[in-house]
Simulated scan of single mutants.
Amino acid sequence: MRPILVIALGLMLTAPLAATAQEEEEPGRSLMERGAELFLKGLSQEVEPALRDLRDMAGKVGPSVLSFLEQMGPALADLADKVEDWSVYEMPEMLPNGDIIIRRKTPLPDPAPEQPADEVPKGLTDI
């Protein structure tokens, strides 16, 4: 008789807890949705310290980056206007003397040689 009383008492105590748990769940949410929510919540808790460190670093580095952009911004914009297609150039290369060169992948053809100023092409008269 004792085991029956223990089982009955256990059912009476767990029934209100089960009803409370069911009320807390949103209707229509599947186990997959709840699992995904818990996964993303755990992931955000794991990533939070790294994001905090990144925010602190941005606070320290931000002013110097803004200063660089204020000084170099116009020069970089001018360079971007002059270069039509960046895909025709190799990666920049630093020479031992510190110069930086950017080579074309395929060189341009040599321009036509200019005629000396003292030579007059045939058929033209110099007045």
Rank of each mutant, 00 (worst) to 15 (best):
56 D>E: 15
30 S>I: 13
81 D>T: 05
59 G>T: 05
115 Q>K: 03
89 Y>F: 13
83 V>D: 12
65 V>W: 05
55 R>F: 05
63 P>H: 06
90 E>H: 12
111 P>Q: 01
7 I>H: 05
105 K>N: 14
79 L>Q: 07
75 A>F: 09
84 E>D: 13
36 A>M: 14
76 L>E: 10
58 A>D: 07
102 I>E: 04
2 R>G: 15
84 E>T: 06
66 L>K: 11
37 E>P: 01
7 I>A: 13
90 E>M: 10
89 Y>L: 11
52 R>A: 14
124 L>Q: 09
31 L>C: 13
116 P>W: 03
72 M>P: 01
74 P>N: 07
4 I>A: 15
36 A>K: 02
33 E>Y: 04
44 S>Q: 09
42 G>V: 00
39 F>M: 08
66 L>E: 11
124 L>H: 06
41 K>Y: 00
119 E>L: 07
36 A>D: 15
127 I>K: 10
89 Y>T: 12
34 R>P: 00
56 D>F: 05
82 K>F: 07
106 T>C: 03
32 M>F: 14
52 R>Q: 10
55 R>Q: 05
1 M>W: 04
72 M>L: 15
60 K>H: 13
81 D>L: 10
9 L>G: 07
80 A>H: 08
98 G>N: 01
62 G>N: 04
83 V>Y: 02
16 P>H: 13
13 L>S: 13
118 D>A: 08
83 V>R: 01
120 V>E: 09
35 G>I: 02
96 P>W: 01
54 L>K: 06
63 P>K: 04
86 W>D: 05
111 P>A: 08
67 S>F: 08
29 R>H: 02
4 I>F: 13
40 L>K: 00
45 Q>P: 00
61 V>K: 06
76 L>W: 07
119 E>Y: 03
62 G>C: 02
14 T>H: 04
113 P>R: 13
54 L>E: 08
69 L>Q: 15
35 G>Q: 07
108 L>C: 02
7 I>G: 02
60 K>A: 14
49 P>C: 00
88 V>C: 04
8 A>P: 01
105 K>Q: 14
20 T>G: 13
70 E>W: 11
127 I>M: 13
53 D>K: 08
120 V>I: 15
18 A>D: 07
86 W>S: 12
36 A>F: 09
105 K>G: 15
104 R>K: 09
66 L>P: 01
51 L>H: 04
60 K>L: 12
49 P>E: 00
73 G>N: 11
63 P>G: 07
120 V>Q: 03
22 Q>S: 10
90 E>C: 12
53 D>R: 07
76 L>F: 12
100 I>E: 06
81 D>K: 11
39 F>T: 03
38 L>I: 00
115 Q>M: 11
29 R>Q: 11
22 Q>Y: 09
52 R>F: 09
118 D>Y: 03
12 M>N: 10
91 M>W: 08
77 A>F: 09
114 E>V: 06
32 M>R: 10
75 A>Y: 10
119 E>P: 00
92 P>H: 08
38 L>M: 11
86 W>T: 11
118 D>S: 06
22 Q>E: 15
